[in-house]
Design a protein around this nucleic acid. Structure first.
Lengths: 360, 360
DNA sequence: TTGTACGCGTTATCAG
DNA sequence: CTGATAACGCGTACAA
């Protein structure tokens, strides 16, 4: 923890010379250089990067603010950001905002006050207009959900298209009573996916039965309640579209005893090992994080300027066997994928566009 | 982005007075205070916390260095750290080290140079003696794996005990050919779990057949290879102990066609929904992170001093139906848990000690 | 080649 | 109650 001054003192030179030696400035006599290097080593000098950072006014840091860093989805986003940031010699500060939105502004501004070089965030509050005064100086990119009240770069996934495809997939299999389950409509992704669900029903000429729409189902209690309510319906639903992976993971167990076809938005480990295996809308949160971070870097180095851009990343519907008919009818449906396998049955990518390979 | 100086200029006072007003120092005349507050508001003053941080030499930041922030296990650890850190008005900088260890020192030291207030890390390199000079000034706590070559606080889980219990569980069910699968023996947790596996076999009077031990099985390719090798054995194993959740998640699908009883170290979502459901050693990574962060906070405020403490957190064996006999034999084994349910059959906690409730 | 002076934004010290 | 001044560690500009 020696400072340059101490090293300079010991080497009998000025701090500037120490600085030069340490930063490999060629304009130093070999002899002086050696003396300084000895002092450097002897004192175990370590640069205080806080001072440097302070000096140039911006920290080589990308702030990441998401609802919860413990959620694998957002952890993957953070991982994607970190991957890109580290390539640019920047580190990552993560902050969990919760889903309430009460503390979003406070937490995000405290991040910004730290002079982070860029910010990648998933909005949780109803309004982000407070970001405007920061966005002028610090690149801000939102991911997963659009920002409201401010013009910033935005990377989201095709929630509506994916949800519509997943619902249509169930309808194409003959289901007529298809339920929807998710967390809450105030979350834009959920609202969009609900819209996609409704669109699919309407396109199939079906009425949307509001009793089939179960919100607040993403925690164990809510899932149990949703399962109870769905079971109580007459006629009961024969299929379910689950709006997010968290909901799927708690609701599917709650529905275990009922026989129901399920598609879910968001893949997760072992989804293919369930019986029946889950057909899912495959997202790529790491790519979301990478794209957002890359955009932030381009704003930082000036290679992108102007108004915020809104990018919708394509998703794909990965068919597994959850939707296939009972085994005894299998021979009647030769197009069905075999158990354990999966195939892409739909993609929001423009046809011919390269898509990442399926996971798992 | 106005500075205190600008505010002072506008209010016609000194910067110190602005500082006082902004920090609610009572020694300011009401009149002066109002003038300053108006200037503060008019200029939209925002503190530059980088400057403050620089001034007091330590950043209100906890560094978190783990193999991969995208891995849900380590994301949960990070979440636990963040929870505690935020209660202490500190934020969290995360760094993924990879599993190689080549870059550990470089990445960790760059974190330390940033004058983080504390460091919570999972070692991935063979030696951490480079930490010694830092640990004198910055609290360092390692989690999940012990540090080598340096004396720091350490929070690990009962790898050996959990693995022994999980293996013994299979042996008690009559299995005699029990395989082991994991990532690599250089990872201390894996080495300990392998030791636990061996201990259980030896306690049962069984020889350890090295061909039953499959390392490098935590990625899809390795898992496929391991599955192939296990299948080729004669006699083939009838049961498997998987040493970590990542291995379980790739190896179980690879083994899907074989009928094998499985226990795994590490729970994961939907483990209870597989058929057969997985019996697992239940860890609590979030608690690991919280405990580590709390210890770091206590080192920071001086309420803990002296040599590093080594804490082993208890784990529990959560029995699900993966180990139960085929349905037709169920009536012969009345002690078996019903499908979908789970029960704790073993815990490394001292009996009577409070344990966290099971997840899922 | 080397050194001096200064500034980054904030807070502590100590006079007034 | 208020303000001038120094200090934190480093890098830049400019001299010598």
């Amino acid at each position: 923890m020696a400072t340059m001054r101490e090293v300079a003192l010991r080497a009998g030179v000025s701090v500037k010379t120490v600085s030069r030696v340490f930063n490999d400035d060629p304009h130093v006599l070999p002899d002086t250089r050696r003396r300084v290097q000895e002092a450097l080593a002897g004192l175990n000098y370590t640069p205080n990067s806080l001072a440097r950072t302070f000096r140039d006014g911006r920290a080589p840091v990308v702030g990441v603010a998401v609802p919860s860093i413990s959620d694998p989805f957002f952890a993957a986003i953070a991982g994607g950001v970190e991957e890109v940031a580290s390539r640019h010699d920047m580190s990552v500060v993560v902050t969990s905002l919760g889903e309430d939105g009460d503390r979003e502004r406070e937490l995000v501004e405290s991040l910004l006050q730290r002079q982070v070089g860029a910010l990648v965030m998933t909005p949780v509050a109803a309004d982000q207009s407070y970001l405007a005064r920061w966005a002028a100086r610090t690149p801000v990119v939102v991911v997963d959900r659009p920002a409201r009240g401010v013009d910033v770069d935005c990377f989201v996934e095709d929630d509506l298209g994916g949800a519509r495809a997943a619902t249509a997939h169930l309808l194409a299999r003959g289901h007529r009573r298809v339920a929807f389950a998710g967390d809450r409509e105030s979350v834009p992704t959920t609202a969009n996916r609900l819209a996609g669900y409704r669109a699919a029903l309407e396109e199939a000429g079906l009425e949307v039965d509001p009793r089939l729409v179960q919100l607040g189902a993403s925690d164990p209690d809510g899932a149990a309640a949703a399962a109870r309510r769905l079971a109580a319906l007459d006629p009961a639903p024969t299929a379910l579209f689950s709006s997010d992976a968290r909901t799927t993971m708690v609701l599917v167990p709650a529905l275990a005893s009922r026989r129901m076809a399920v598609t879910g938005f968001g893949d997760f480990p072992m989804a293919s090992m369930l019986s029946p295996a889950l057909t899912v809308v495959d997202q790529d949160p790491a790519a979301l994080g990478r794209r957002a971070a890359e955009r932030a870097m381009r704003r930082l180095d000036g290679s992108v300027e102007g108004a915020g851009e809104h990018v919708v990343l394509p998703v794909r519907l990965l068919e597994r066997s959850s939707c296939r008919p009972p085994d005894r009818l299998l021979e009647l449906f030769p197009w069905t994928v075999p158990a354990g396998a999966e195939r892409v049955v739909w993609s929001s990518a423009p046809s011919g566009a390269p898509t990442a390979p399926a996971r798992g």
